[in-house]
Design a protein around this nucleic acid. Structure first.
Lengths: 336, 336
DNA sequence: AGATAAAATCTAAACGTTTACATTTAGGGG
DNA sequence: CCCCTAAATGTAAACGTTTAGATTTTATCT
């Protein structure tokens, strides 16, 4: 196998200088049609593909944005990613995705790697919000957009959903149906989404004068297993809750499995609302009432903000978009 | 904002030559402890991060593998990806993921981009199997591993599951329960998985002397919508099938929705088996019988093969791993 | 045809690393 | 204390682009 052809080889074959070749591959114009054809032919003949590395070195830009998510297995993120990818492609950008498995150590590794590679910007759902480990990005002048989870003490554009409101509405819905003992399965409370959802829960109780009871608050980690365990805990309480709110999709699945295993009858003995719509929602019997988020839009918006930052380096003030989730009322909640 | 520090700046601050700095950042040893400390301190002070671009240019390697999937929204791929990512991290490799949305045009774009970036290898589930558009990779000497779908006329390592066998077992299971009119919802037949699943279906019918009936074969595209439509078609047949086999997860979901909308009662009026286990499977009533694939293993194995190729450039002969899927018998099939 | 302007093309210098090879420094033995 | 060897460090070239500025070619107008 020959060594890979470079711009030099193309230039020689087409009998021009490398500068002219460069002009052609970058569509800069100012090249005679005849010359261009000759060069194009040479490129084709040699199978020349330009080296992004060399180009990046000169241009200091990569037309690449890095995306960091905490858990690629959570279907929420692939959908957000699809939104990002689509918008990025439209603008001629390329995306690279990495997952941290909710580990800050891995997140740091990825960030460093992204910087090494010279990404033009980063879209991140961070594993740890109060984290200095993202300062490096800012020091390097790399724009950041936080999506789904905001970042403390870092002045970055943010696209989130109104977690508090979404949860408030869900809990309110339950209260209005007569529920007073409502369990909530939380995510990691050092993440805004999890925290805000708990706030929404508390506020709804307060507004309707229902005493807050610590035993109904389960501390989960956004993984299926913790939803399962948490639900069993709730079940084993002397005064069982009559309704359960689960703070994310994966935990909802775990929770529902626990319900089945306990023979705790959904929609009859216990009402249920989950944050995030999931495939199973409409297949369950009864169908699941959920708080749904505009996931695709979240991604599209995130890229759009990032792109603006990349394009106009001038300091636009920080922007925060808060999208509204929607309570999709189906059948898993019953009067109590 | 200062311009980013380079190795030169570090060298000056630490009062050494750039060669020594290079030795330190690459852990090559042969540097006096005292000097190393001085350099490390300088690196830290300046916030120096080496440029991958410049490095790649010299070394002609990136420690990066590119992963191409046809549909990031299909939960199958994120799980495979998780397997790849984990193994890659262990070996010090970094992965970049892109999704083609089943479009060959986009796939070509991505491939080109990967080459430009100098990925050391590619793991791909191609959108179009009989495709010359992957030859470029081979021409560039970039190792490829095909996962889930093989590639025609290209001599690459392959990791797939035994689609034919998996489907055969499913259909056999239905036949032994007395079903004779069995519908199948196929994926795009120019992909091996879809094709092989159809083959498995036909072979099972043949082995049990059940006549093949074209009207029970629905041509879908692996997307939810086609599963929905296909199922309605089957429902509208004069001689409705008594059982349905769906060739992938997304189409299963569509199919099940159609069942509900038609009031065609699952497990009673119609039996059902889907390829790939899905969240909803165990929540349905009755629970879904499925053909399950070892998705995580698929990814791990794929990276392993690729890594071997990258490490020992010598021409090991082509390898093909075919993993066995497993028929998980639950409740969605009933005697007929 | 000659002068001039405009268009096309070329030359050469970066960009930030790695590394073969050259040079300096340190350490030990006599 | 000097010499020799090994260890540590330095020098300089190369990797493949882009691009400013220099030069050549072409086209236009008298």
């Amino acid at each position: 196998m020959e060594s890979k052809p470079n711009i030099q080889a193309v230039a020689k074959l087409a009998n021009v200088s490398i500068a002219t070749v460069s002009r052609v591959i970058n569509n800069q114009g100012g090249v005679r049609k005849k010359t261009e054809d000759r060069i194009l032919k040479a490129i084709d003949e040699l199978g020349y593909i330009r080296s992004a590395a060399a180009r990046t070195m000169k241009k200091k830009e990569t037309k690449t944005v890095g995306v960091i998510v905490p858990d690629i297995k959570n279907p929420f993120f692939p959908i957000v990613m699809a939104g990002i990818e689509q918008k990025a492609r439209e603008k001629g950008y390329f995306t690279i995705l990495s997952s941290t498995s909710e580990s800050q150590a891995i997140e740091e590794e990825i960030v460093k790697n992204f910087i090494e590679r010279g990404v033009d910007g980063v879209i991140i759902t961070t594993a740890n919000e109060d984290s200095d480990h993202l300062k490096v990005l800012q020091n390097q002048g790399i724009p950041i957009v936080a999506v789904d989870r905001s970042i403390q003490n870092l002045n970055v554009d943010t696209v989130i959903v109104d977690n508090e409101k979404g949860t408030y509405q869900a809990i309110q819905h339950l209260i209005l149906q007569g529920h007073k003992r409502i369990g909530i399965i939380c995510g990691p409370l050092n993440t805004t989404p999890a925290f805000k959802r708990l706030i929404g829960y508390k506020k709804a109780l307060e507004d309707y004068n229902i005493p807050f009871n610590e035993q109904y608050v389960i501390h989960g980690d956004f993984q299926e297993q913790s939803g399962y365990k948490g639900t069993k805990e709730l079940y084993s309480l002397d005064e069982q809750p009559t309704a359960i709110f689960s703070s994310n999709n994966l935990m909802s699945i775990g929770s529902l499995k626990a319900l089945q295993d306990c023979n705790w009858i959904l929609g009859k003995e216990v009402s249920f609302i989950g944050f995030d719509d999931i495939d199973i929602a409409t297949f369950m019997n009864p169908k699941l009432t959920v708080v749904a988020r505009p996931m695709n839009t979240l991604g599209e918006l995130a890229f759009q903000l990032l792109h603006e930052r990349i394009s106009f380096k001038e300091s636009v003030p920080r922007r925060e978009y808060m999208l509204s989730p929607e309570l999709k009322i189906r059948e898993s909640c019953r009067l109590n």
